[in-house]
Simulated scan of single mutants.
Amino acid sequence: MLGVAVAAVLGASCDKVHAQSADLVLCDRLAADPTDPDKPADVRGVAEIVHTDLTTAIKFCRTASGSRRALYQLGRAYAANQQMAEAIAAWRKAVDKGSTSAMIELGVAYGTGSAIGKDEAQARKLFERAAEAGNPRGASNLAALSSGGAPADPVRARALLAKGAETNAEAQYQLGLLLSEGIGGPKDDAAARVLFEKAAAQNHPGALERMGAFAQSGRGGASDSGAAKAYYERAAALGDEDAKKALERAKCPYVIKDKRGNVVTNLCF
């Protein structure tokens, strides 16, 4: 199938420019990231590269690696093939060419210490560069990069997340958390609820759980137990553990405590 595709693309000309273009087309087809801002609008992308396509993806993306998009995608293919040293090297080259998606992947590697020395300061720099260039994943990762659950610079995190929150569900959720807790600026439950609702509409599990909690308590807006249950159920179906616990608590609302105030059990109905 790929042979036919290559022949079709290369049929008009066999010069080097056309050959490189064909390699990039095939690299895109097999390894493009749906969230990559560099991805052409007519390329759907794949959330995960199909295992049987890895060798072919590496081949075409490596040949097309003059492009920063191809370098980033080459890193994706290497990472999916458990070749992390090669993935890191490809992402470094893509970062040098300005790929914000590669900045994020390299930042994650530094932040987690995966196949590279852990360096949160370097991770933060990479996330900041990506966020400042307009990649919402950079802003949300920067907000999440923390010790003890709070961003190192919450004021800056708010500002960067505000850019990403225009379109990105994760940025909306992360900014909503900061607003709901009053981190990095004034507490604003109403604005937080609006952000959680936007992210929940995109099936973000955490935002669905937060909307359940806000609807249940009437935080930032109207109280609605029916809506709260529906949000919790959607979040639980997507694997959110807090939502699952909330649904269990709803089934067993009566708490029995000992003399010290410790919960002994819950009565269910």
Rank of each mutant, 00 (worst) to 15 (best):
M1I: 09
V6I: 13
V9D: 11
C14P: 10
Q20Y: 10
A22F: 08
D23F: 04
L24P: 10
V25M: 14
C27H: 08
R29M: 12
L30E: 03
L30Y: 02
A31S: 12
A32Y: 08
D33Y: 06
D33N: 15
P34H: 05
D36F: 11
P37N: 13
K39D: 03
D42L: 11
D42F: 13
G45H: 10
A47V: 11
A47T: 14
V50R: 13
V50M: 02
D53T: 04
L54I: 05
F60A: 10
C61D: 04
T63D: 13
S65Y: 12
G66Y: 11
G66Q: 10
R68D: 13
R68E: 12
G75H: 09
R76D: 09
R76L: 05
A77W: 03
N81R: 04
Q82C: 02
E86Y: 06
A87S: 02
I88F: 10
A90C: 08
R92P: 03
V95T: 13
K97N: 06
G98K: 01
S101I: 01
G107W: 11
V108T: 03
V108G: 00
A109V: 03
G111D: 01
T112S: 13
G113N: 06
A115L: 03
A115I: 00
I116D: 05
I116H: 07
Q122S: 09
A123C: 10
R124H: 09
L126E: 02
L126Q: 03
F127K: 05
F127L: 09
R129S: 12
A130T: 00
A130C: 00
E132K: 15
N135D: 15
R137D: 13
A139Y: 06
N141C: 09
A143C: 05
G149A: 05
P151N: 14
P151E: 14
P154T: 05
R156N: 06
R156F: 08
A157P: 00
A162F: 11
G164Q: 08
G164S: 09
A169R: 13
Q172W: 09
Q172K: 06
Q172R: 08
G176A: 09
L177I: 02
L178A: 09
L179G: 10
L179C: 12
E181Y: 05
G182N: 02
I183N: 07
G184D: 01
V194D: 15
L195H: 01
E197G: 01
Q202M: 15
Q202P: 00
A207H: 13
E209L: 03
M211L: 14
M211D: 03
M211A: 03
A213V: 10
F214Y: 14
A215N: 14
A215T: 12
G218I: 00
G220Q: 08
G221T: 06
A222I: 04
D224K: 09
S225W: 07
G226H: 04
A230Q: 07
Y231R: 03
Y231C: 02
R234Q: 06
R234Y: 02
A235P: 06
A236H: 13
A236I: 05
A236P: 11
G239N: 01
D240W: 12
E241C: 00
K244V: 04
K244S: 09
K244T: 10
K245R: 15
A246Y: 11
K251M: 03
K257A: 10
K257N: 08
G261V: 12
N262Y: 14
V264F: 06
L267K: 14
